[in-house]
Amino acid sequence: MLGPHLLRRLKADVLKGMPSKSEFIVRVELSPMQKKYYKYILTRNFGALNTRGCQVSLLNIMMDLKKCCNHPYLFPTASADAPRLPNGAYEGTALRKACGKLELLHLMLKQLKDQGHRVLIFSQMTKMLDILEDFCEAEGYHYERIDGGITGSSRQDAIDRFNVAGAKAFIFLLSTRAGGLGINLATADTVIIYDSDWNPHNDIQAFSRAHRIGQANKVMIFRFVTRASVEERITQVAKKKMMLTHLVVRPGLGNKGGAMSKKELDDILKFGTEELFKDEQGSDQSSIVYDEDSVSKLIDRSQVGMEEREMAMNEYLSSFKVASYSVKEGEQEVSLGLVFH
């Protein structure tokens, strides 16, 4: 029914020699400080998790858990206790060690810079971009930034400065919504999605800032996901939405989707909590640890390196619940049914 009314042209249809893009989910551990706050949020709100008719409260908890996965300094108490420099910025080493994602980012950016790549970093939270600014200052990286508060000529000036030949800026910090449309940043060839959006199409719009006509290099997209946390469950939900999109309206044309039920919210919030509370003794036997060698394999753009990571990704994604479809043929009609494994 929809087919005759849809007309789509993909970049691949317009430009045959377009460089490829590869997306990888990079799983990160919570730092000790993040684990402390994650447990605090869950235990403080335990009553809300088990009572009826408190959707707003559950969404608030979910936002707090997402903040915790991004950086504990997003909470006023952690921010107030954090060591700072004389200019008011956060001290670099403490800032990095407080968050598993920043520890990995520190290792990745060092190698990407040495190899001559340029990076776009997307986050949904502008306060997270403030923290990333302090991180870039501490690491000594030149950067540009766009979020909803930067409009008009200053926005275009930042893009022009980044794209000019011989530009100093190595990193471009963008908010997913404000930096996701109508911007050409094809001079960068690496995209880091620091935290994923509920709607996978917003993230697709974001990394399409680099993977577009004018891009000369292979584009690598790294999506940071905190292991056994609310973020990992969000990735599963996003994957299910993408499957439905592919089935119903062809790739790339998704709708926003309705509000989530209380059960779905419960399910997302409780995901991974059992493992988190089991870890009271501090045993790190199954934790993911990144060193310089593993990071160099992660950002390796050679054919062999890509194939190895593709296999690992497929194994990881196959562990998620996936929507598959089967066509049942009756006497009069053909119906499409969704079967969830």
Rank of each mutant, 00 (worst) to 15 (best):
M1S: 14
P4G: 04
L6H: 04
R9W: 03
K11Y: 05
A12K: 10
A12E: 12
V14S: 03
M18A: 10
E23R: 12
F24N: 01
I25T: 10
V26R: 00
M33T: 13
K39S: 14
F46N: 09
L49W: 00
N50R: 13
G53N: 14
M63D: 07
L74R: 01
F75I: 02
D81M: 09
P83G: 02
A89C: 12
Y90S: 04
Y90H: 10
L105T: 02
L109N: 02
D114A: 15
K127Q: 14
M128F: 05
I131N: 08
Y143D: 04
I146S: 09
D147F: 04
G148W: 08
R155I: 03
V164T: 14
A165N: 09
A169H: 01
A178T: 06
G179H: 04
N184G: 07
I193E: 01
Y194G: 00
Y194C: 02
S208K: 02
I213R: 00
G214N: 01
G214W: 03
Q215W: 01
R223Y: 00
F224G: 03
S229T: 13
H246L: 10
V248P: 02
V249M: 04
P251D: 15
P251T: 06
P251F: 01
L253Y: 12
N255V: 12
M260P: 09
E264I: 12
L269A: 11
L269E: 08
F277I: 10
K278R: 15
Q285P: 02
D291M: 08
S294W: 02
K297D: 14
R301V: 09
G305H: 02
E307F: 03
E308G: 02
E310S: 09
S319Y: 07
S319N: 14
F320G: 06
A323S: 11
G337D: 05
V339C: 07
F340S: 07
